[in-house]
Design a protein around this nucleic acid. Structure first.
Lengths: 133, 133
DNA sequence: GTCGAATTGATAACCGTTATCATTACGAGT
DNA sequence: ACTCGTAATGATAACGGTTATCAATTCGAC
């Protein structure tokens, strides 16, 4: 029998919790939020759900400078990058065909294959920049 | 008395071991290499030395997709990016004016300031790709 | 050479993540 | 609606990388 994806309330809860966030969240942070909201969901399940969402492409993941994996529900289904406010976490999804091609070309120029790239921009969004001034 | 940096053979050993490598190495990998070379240096010390080198700017550090911290003594002192073999660690330093401008433009297009970007490409170098086949 | 303080290193503690495995419950088929 | 096989769950153990601990060491100023 072929593996069938089941719809569990837990999976849905994770998806919704992720959607309700504006920026990137850690698995543990999301779990904590769900527990605080009264859900008895398990930590392992949150990790699994997030991994699944990331695999399917419904969520994007990246690593914080501290080494944690952060997740986010991305509107764009295709491959894209992020522009992240390092102060408030506001995230903008970015299309970068230009960079995509550059990465691929650069890799093959040097004989590299199976190239994947990490491209993210961290900065201060307009609001945070103003608030800071 | 103010804190004084001491010159220990261990610190020097780490610096040299890092210089002798072509690509990024994990702290554990470097430690292993030193032990294999006969040095009785401790793992904790390697971590400390690498952290120091990174702080001073004598070493570049980045995180592998798997979450490990990798270190490298870079030839270029200025801003540059990396093309890294995820199998052997071979690293090519990359100038990417193209991407540099794209990043700056993208950030300002969205009202972001003080933008810094993380741009690295991971792949399999020609040798590792062949060895794998 | 002395001596105080920085450094070392073996190991324990940490932290995030993944694996384990008995239990639960989804949902296709009847 | 009821069964039943199996995927999913969740408490917890295991895991891997990194950091903290702390007694022993050793650098280097005097």
């Amino acid at each position: 029998m072929v593996a069938v994806k089941r719809n569990t309330w837990q999976r849905e809860a994770v998806r919704e919790a992720l959607d309700s966030r504006d920026g990137f969240v850690s698995a543990q942070g999301l779990h904590q939020g769900l527990r605080d909201a009264g859900s008895p969901i398990g930590l392992a399940t949150v990790y699994r759900a997030l991994a699944d969402l990331a695999t399917v492409g419904e969520a994007d993941s990246l690593q914080s400078p501290e080494g944690e994996s952060l997740y986010r529900a991305c509107a764009t289904t295709g491959h894209h990058h992020h522009l992240i406010c390092r102060s408030c976490g506001l995230t903008v999804e970015i299309e970068a065909t230009e960079v995509e091609q550059w990465a691929k070309r650069t890799a093959s120029d040097h004989g590299f294959t199976e190239a994947q790239h990490i491209v993210d921009i961290f900065g201060l969004c307009h609001q945070c920049a103003s608030a800071k001034a």
